[in-house]
Design a protein around this nucleic acid. Structure first.
Length: 207
DNA sequence: GCCAACGTTGGC
DNA sequence: GCCAACGTTGGC
């Protein structure tokens, strides 16, 4: 059954900046700190992240004959407005996906496009499992070193929740980030800037 | 284990 | 389309 398309809810991002900041602050706050151990390079395992940012390209780009386009509208058009997040080929991004739990939320970020920025919110509806595209020779993300017995790459399923009431562009986020670096604001450690090239990331850096 | 060369990401 | 940043590969 396909649920009726959601309207942009009234609980959405308001159009004023204060409320956006409050929201981000709240989402950031949900990050839970496990009891600290002294081994600092285990930090990533010690810390549980609850809110994510996942990048996808909303504009057509052909790679080995396959269109990489997958914007938020493409997600909305899927059955159940749900899609698997295949194609991640970076270990850190993969590892983050492997820690994702059902029900957690992520910002859907539009990358490599005219106006990069956050377009909407999705939720994790299936936890990490093998990414089938790694076994498909015709797929741009085929990995000949991976095996069915021991798959190297994982993916999760995400479901559309809603668009943001207004698109939050990268340039706006960057301004906030720069301000927050001096004012100790909530976007001070936003991974979008501290780990710019990661395609799957927790909202704020702590790793 | 170092690090140069190479490949990819993604803003601009 | 350029290219900076940075992750990966592989020679040594």
């Amino acid at each position: 059954m396909r649920p009726a398309k959601r309207k942009c809810g009234t609980s959405g991002f308001e159009s004023n900046e204060e409320t956006i900041l409050k929201k981000v602050k709240n989402m950031t706050k949900l990050r839970k700190q496990k009891p600290a151990k002294d081994n600092s390079n285990e930090k990533q395992q010690q810390e549980e992240y609850h809110c994510w940012l996942m990048k996808s390209e909303p504009e057509s780009r052909i790679e080995k004959g396959i269109d990489m386009k997958f914007g938020i509208e493409d997600l909305m058009a899927q059955p159940n407005q749900t899609a698997c997040w295949d194609g991640v080929r970076n270990y850190q991004a993969r590892n983050f996906m492997r820690t994702m739990k059902i029900g957690q939320r992520a910002f859907f970020y539009h990358s490599n496009c005219k106006e990069p920025g956050i377009a909407g919110i999705v939720k994790i509806v299936k936890e990490a499992y093998a990414d089938h595209t790694q076994f498909d020779e015709k797929n741009p993300h085929f990995d000949s070193y991976s095996s069915q017995d021991n798959p190297r790459w994982s993916m999760v399923d995400v479901q559309f929740i809603r668009r943001l009431k207004r698109y939050i562009s990268l340039s706006e986020l960057k301004k906030l980030h720069l301000n927050h670096k001096t004012s100790e604001g909530p976007l001070k450690n936003m991974a979008l800037f501290t780990r710019a090239r990661l395609s799957v990331q927790p909202l704020t850096q702590g790793f």
